[in-house]
Amino acid sequence: MVRDVSFGQYFPGKSLLHRIDPRAKLLCFIAFVVVIFFTFNYASLGLIVAAMVFLVAVSGIAPKFYFKSLKVILVVVLITSVLNLFYGSGEAIWEWWILRLTWNGIHRAVFVTVRIICLILASSCLTFTTSPTELTDALERLMKPLAKIHFPVHEIAMMMSLALRFVPTLLEETDKLMQAQKARGADMESGGFFKRVRSLIPILIPLFVSAFRRAYDIATAMECRCYRGGSGRTRMKILHMSARDIIAMIATALLIGGVIVCNLLLASVI
């Protein structure tokens, strides 16, 4: 079933991560993702992994769902790590045809694997513990300075929240359409690549038609409620920064500092 995908899902809860202000969480997340790619030796990589394990532990979400989110990108991880394995420079320790294994390549493979896994886990951490509304609210608030240069901040945030809102709806609809076309004997499980792509047509066309229909409905509904953009709108939920959020940001800053120190003091292996 299509609905089995857990990546990007939100699980309501009351854990520490759930309670952190979404703006602080988003900032910490961005900093964390950037710093993942500034790890050049095992000490700094270890710091990141430790932080990641800590985050997963305090998120209050069963590890099973994190594994599920990783399953989706398993192939990507495998391909990139194998490519990196034979892409290193330096002295070869094993050679066959065009394949050249080096210590540098092994390190690269380890780093790229851990980095991608941490990247996915971190994004899962964010989306598992933050509702789409909170996330877009945070984004809109953080991007607000850009409105000064006539960047349509509110419109973009509104588009994002609408898009996110309709992900589960469209997934459910896909599921229904698949059942309906299967009932008419559509064969989606066998045949070669082109046959399989062709067999998606009976699903995709009705799906697009209904997506457009929903878009028009939403537009009409918004106009009926006199929606006219973001200027002058007040919020029902006003975000508040608390000591908890400041501590979270300080912790992230310390992590970044730790990674920089490790990079400065120890030699890089890749």
Binding site: L177, Q179, A180, P202, P206, V209, S210
Partner: peptide
Amino acid sequence: RQVRFRVGMVFQYPEYQLFEDTVYKDIAF
């Protein structure tokens, strides 16, 4: 699949499953 031809199923709001370019082709699917 053979079972699904012998036991036909019309879902709720089946009109949303139409996709061909003519009604004839859709009925023939």
